[in-house]
Design a protein around this nucleic acid. Structure first.
Lengths: 128, 128
DNA sequence: CCTATAGTTCGCAACATACGAACTTATGAA
DNA sequence: TTCATAAGTTCGTATGTTGCGAACTATAGG
């Protein structure tokens, strides 16, 4: 097992960040980590929103986030503690992560709104 | 040749935007289009920053931008006029594109700063 | 109709991604 | 110590995506 490598802040690129967050699973992991008041292990994400994500896939996603500079991981015994580097990134690219997060949540809300009328329509069809 | 398709604003996704702009060539095309006071053809990008990008590759990049909802393309005779849809996207995801653009330009400046000392060092070495 | 020009599509090679199986490392019990 | 277990990583492979040359399509102007 090769040691964990984290890019220095100067080596973090916008393209890397955008690419890492353009994957829905990684984006979900990232925002969840950024909301968590304490560090989080990988296995905490084995089940995400009803989807069961294989361990190996998760491991790759964490590596992608780490290599993009979005998170910092450190071994703690048998498990791994992951924390976001958002303060650092905010320093280098002010406003970037908040803007992306805001957009994601707008989209998330819009999807909920979309789902509502459909469910109502289905119910109406059933009762008719 | 299948007709040009543009997603409706509701179908534009954050992941799609991030993915489209995570490619340096597409990002460059996009920002250049957004700076252009008028619409721009594809062939205007055949030579970008000393790099010569093949026509077919360019065509794919334009398609990617179009399908992500970032640009609108319309035939005008034998060529294609491309315009950004940034006003629409700003409406749906306020602040997203400006934040990304700002980050890109910060990175661009940082790279220039990085290049300077090197060139100076090289000159010093030559004169020594 | 012929030719030139701007883009698109096709086909293939190179690269990236997902995931099961096998492996490594740390922990705790016997 | 030795064994079992748990958390992650790495490997192999199947599947998907991307880049680019060659062939194609569509339009404008002789």
């Amino acid at each position: 097992m090769r040691p964990l490598t984290h890019p220095s802040l100067d080596d973090v690129t916008v393209e890397g960040i955008l690419h890492a967050l353009s994957d829905p699973v990684r984006a979900a992991i990232y925002w969840q980590l950024s909301c968590a008041d304490s560090a989080n292990t990988c296995s905490a994400f084995l089940k995400m929103e009803d989807r069961c994500i294989p361990k190996s896939t998760l491991s790759q996603h964490f590596r992608a986030l780490r290599e993009a500079g979005l998170i910092r991981s450190e071994r703690r015994g048998v498990e791994m503690l992951n924390t976001t580097r958002c303060a650092e990134i905010e320093q280098r690219f002010p406003g970037l992560l908040p803007a992306i997060k805001n957009a994601q949540s707008i989209q998330c809300e819009a999807r909920k709104q979309d789902a509502e009328p459909k469910r109502a329509a289905t119910q109406a069809a059933h009762s008719a």
